[in-house]
Design a protein around this nucleic acid. Structure first.
Length: 117
DNA sequence: TTGTTGACGGTTT
DNA sequence: GAAACCGCCAACA
C-alpha cells in the first residue's frame, strides 16, 4: 500500500508534527542541527524543509526550537528580522555559552538520541 | 504556468 | 586545511 512511505517524494501533512515532535524531545542544555532533526523525523536530506517548519512556528510554541541550529554551530540571520539574538540569549540561559558572533559549541552540547545500542 | 528563493548538508576541488 | 559547488524539495512571486 502505497502509503507512499519510504521514499515518499511528497512531504506528508504530518511533517510539521514530526519535526516539532523531535524538537520537543530535545532535552534542556542540548543542541541539535537541522539535518539531525530531519533525520530523526524520518526525512534525511531535507533540512531546509525543517527550517521552513520552524520558521512558521508561532512565538507561543512550547517547542524549544531555539535549541536547533545549523550544523555549523552558528545561529543564522543574526541581525535579520529574526530575533536570533534573543534565542542565543535563551541558549545561554539553558547553560549553553554563545559567542557574540552567534556561534556556539555545538559539539560540546550535541544532542545524542538513543541509537539503540 | 514557470522561475527563484530558502533557519542547510554533504561532497569535491 | 579551507573554499566552492551542487543537490533536495517545498513554498512564494
Amino acid at each position: 500500500m502505497p502509503t507512499t512511505e519510504g521514499r515518499g517524494r511528497k512531504l506528508p501533512p504530518e511533517f510539521p508534527e514530526l519535526v516539532l515532535g523531535v524538537v520537543r524531545r530535545i532535552p534542556k542544555g542540548r543542541l541539535a542541527s537541522y539535518g539531525q532533526v530531519a533525520v530523526l523525523a524520518g526525512f534525511p536530506g531535507r533540512p531546509r524543509q525543517v527550517g521552513m517548519v520552524l520558521k512558521g512556528l508561532p512565538q507561543g510554541s512550547r517547542v524549544p526550537w531555539h535549541r536547533v541550529v545549523n550544523n555549523l554551530g552558528h545561529i543564522p540571520s543574526q541581525g535579520r528580522h529574526w530575533s536570533a539574538l534573543e534565542q542565543a540569549r535563551r541558549l545561554q540561559a539553558e547553560g549553553i555559552p554563545v559567542n557574540a558572533d552567534g556561534e556556539l559549541d555545538l559539539e560540546a552540547h550535541r544532542w545524542r538520541p538513543r541509537v539503540a545500542s
